[in-house]
């Protein structure tokens, strides 16, 4: 017990962590917006944002201010109550998702045995938010986007779970810290060497679950205007956007912890290795976005049900047999 405040120490840690995470998520949102636009620019042989600040570094701040300043409009005929609850439902689980992630040897907000399960459970809620947003907008593009989001997330959640399960079986634990400390400092001691198939499946499914190109069908701008968030203005859209970036960081952080050795590194293990790996994966995600064209919807579903799911099952079986031997 902490006498001056009367707050239990565990609760205090979590409150502190939540405050820090809010800052982390917001800051990362800004950095990622800038990175995304710069990476997109350079891949398309143009400089990207250049006007606001040196090399356009203040561009995301200007973007954020613009979003905050815009009027919030509820479309006529929309289910007003659900329409404004949806962005909140989309963003609220983000904080829970970050709690069990081991950023460094001691830098974990909440050490828990079921950490991996916690992330998987709360990550699923995002889809519900997309559905509600698409439904309550009373707009055919939004509804089509929501329908796509449902089919896509259901299809890709299963191989993702199976890929993660292979690692969990290998370590006999759902605690991310245990899994990280079970891996060595050098790249050949990381899980990606033992479980390359699981990593491949995980990363493809993570792209689909976060609605990133080439799997960005729920918001496909060239077909559906903006999909499920067509009708959202200002911060309504901004919160969806922030939640998407936060989810990207979470899936990359989980990939880092599960497959890339987490905070382990050849020299001076610590939080910096974790962040470097997470940002490398994020850059790969952006690189994918500007490299691959969007898949067609039947291709998307076929890829999951006919290829990734059987592959994940075989991978899980082989892992089980090897673990038992």
């Amino acid at each position: 017990m902490n006498p001056p405040f009367g707050i239990p120490p565990e609760l205090f840690t979590i409150l502190l962590a939540l405050g820090l995470l809010a800052g982390f998520v917001g800051l990362n949102g800004l950095v990622l917006v800038y990175l995304e636009r710069k990476v997109a620019g350079h891949i398309q042989r143009r400089p990207g944002p250049f006007e606001v600040g040196p090399h356009g570094i203040l561009q995301p701040l200007a973007d954020a201010l613009k979003l905050v300043g815009k009027q919030l409009i509820t479309p006529r005929g929309a289910d007003k109550w659900l329409f404004w609850t949806a962005p909140i439902i989309s963003f609220a689980p983000v904080f829970v998702l970050f709690l069990p992630i081991p950023f460094g040897p001691v830098l974990t907000a909440m050490e828990m045995d079921l950490g991996l399960l916690l992330i998987l459970a709360f990550a699923g809620i995002n889809v519900l938010a997309l559905c509600l947003a698409g439904w309550s907008s009373e707009n055919k593009w939004s509804l089509l986007g929501a329908a796509r989001a449902v089919a896509q997330s259901v299809a890709y959640e299963i191989p993702l779970l199976l890929a993660v399960l292979a690692i969990a079986f290998q370590f006999g634990s759902l605690n991310l810290s245990t899994i990280v400390s079970g891996q060595g400092a050098w790249p050949w001691q990381w899980n990606i060497m033992v479980q390359p198939v699981a990593f491949f499946i995980y990363f493809v499914c993570a792209l689909a679950e976060t609605n990133r190109a080439p799997f960005d069908l729920p918001e496909a701008e060239s077909e559906l205007t903006a999909g499920f968030h067509t009708e959202y203005s200002g911060m309504g859209f901004g919160i969806f956007f922030l939640a998407e970036y936060a989810n990207m960081i979470v899936v990359c952080a989980v990939a880092t912890a599960l497959f890339l050795g987490g905070w382990n590194g050849p020299a001076a293990p610590g939080v910096w290795w974790f962040l470097v790996k997470v940002y490398l994966l994020l850059l790969v995600m952006m690189w994918f976005r500007w490299t691959y064209p969007r898949v067609r919807f039947d291709q998307l579903l076929n890829l999951s049900w006919k290829w990734l799911l059987p592959l994940a099952l075989i991978n899980l079986l082989v892992t089980l047999v090897l673990v038992k031997i």
Partner: peptide, 15 residues
């Protein structure tokens, strides 16, 4: 409960 009911089953019902 959250993984199966709140996320998966609700979405199935939505579908």
């Amino acid at each position: 409960q959250i993984l199966i009911y709140v996320a998966a089953v609700s979405i199935m019902i939505f579908f």
